[in-house]
């Protein structure tokens, strides 16, 4: 199984590097405008007060805290999370389905390995890829905040906020993995992952606008309320639980489906 894991990691290498750099660069870009933000905070606050509250909610703007470094970081984190979710969903959706799309399934599945072992190797490889992205991100971004934004973020708050990126990514990895294991041939991975991720994102934005809490349970983008995290230095337990359950269910179902289904011929 080690051989498959290494093979998968090699195959993911390039994409992982590109995604990691992009996420960090994206964060750096946003953070570089923070100093300007702080000096103009009063003007901006007045301007934002003019916007309808629902509009502010949809964009994750909190009047009280947007000019603090934690508040500002919370605001950009939701966009980084959107990008990171696409990374995770892409990874999950392609990692199994690429064998059938690339017609290499007949090579892999006629080797003396069980299908469950194949899935485990692939899942582990995807998990490690995301882990690498997050470790690099967690090390790089505080440094960037310090260097570019000229501020120091409370490290516990930063970690609590930033771990949510990994959690939400795991949600989409699980979902993508399930799609991948289920569908016998996916024409375009990107189309599937973009539609899904934006679907959940828009649902999240709707929840902000309407203030309807029922949607909160459905979209991972709403499992972690940044304002709550900054204020309480903790997560809301019930949403962490939902997240864990969803991830476990998608993975178990993926195994169940993939082990039993027919592999389409070339």
């Amino acid at each position: 199984m080690m051989n498959m894991l290494i093979h998968e990691l090699r195959q993911n290498q390039k994409a992982t590097i590109i995604w990691t750099l992009s996420l960090v660069a994206g964060a750096a870009l946003y953070l570089s405008i923070f100093p300007a933000f702080v000096t103009e905070a009063d003007t901006l606050r007045k301007m934002l007060e003019g916007f309808p509250p629902t509009f502010r909610k949809a964009f994750g703007v909190t009047l009280e805290s947007f000019a603090t470094v934690a508040g500002f970081y919370s605001m950009i984190l939701s966009y980084i999370m959107l990008a990171g979710s696409i990374q995770a969903m892409n990874l999950g959706t392609s990692i199994v389905s690429k064998e059938e799309r690339g017609k290499t399934a007949e090579f892999l599945l006629t080797k003396p390995v069980r299908r469950s072992q194949i899935l485990t190797a692939k899942l582990l490889a995807a998990f490690i890829s995301l882990l690498v992205t997050n470790v690099v991100y967690l090390v790089a971004v505080p440094l960037i905040i310090n260097a570019m934004a000229g501020a120091i973020i409370d490290i516990k708050t930063f970690l609590l906020l930033s771990f949510t990126l990994f959690f939400v990514q795991l949600f989409f990895l699980g979902l993508g993995f399930l799609v991948s294991a289920w569908a016998s041939r996916i024409r375009s991975v990107l189309a599937v992952s973009l539609t899904t991720v934006f679907g959940f994102y828009i649902a999240g934005a709707l929840d902000s606008i309407i203030g309807n809490t029922a949607i909160r349970y459905l979209t991972p983008f709403k499992y972690f309320d940044f304002a709550y995290i900054v204020k309480n230095s903790s997560y809301e337990l019930q949403f962490v639980l939902i997240e864990v359950i969803v991830v476990i269910l998608t993975i178990i179902t993926s195994y169940y489906v993939y082990v039993k289904r027919d592999i389409r011929s070339t």
Binding site: Q11, G102, K103, T104, E106, F107, T110, K111, P112, V113, R114, Q117, T266
Partner: peptide, 21 residues
Amino acid sequence: FGAEIKEDIGYLPSEVFYYDN
């Protein structure tokens, strides 16, 4: 016993496709 017996099977499909890179 699929995985076990494949230890001793060699298979050549009609169309061969392998990881391109």
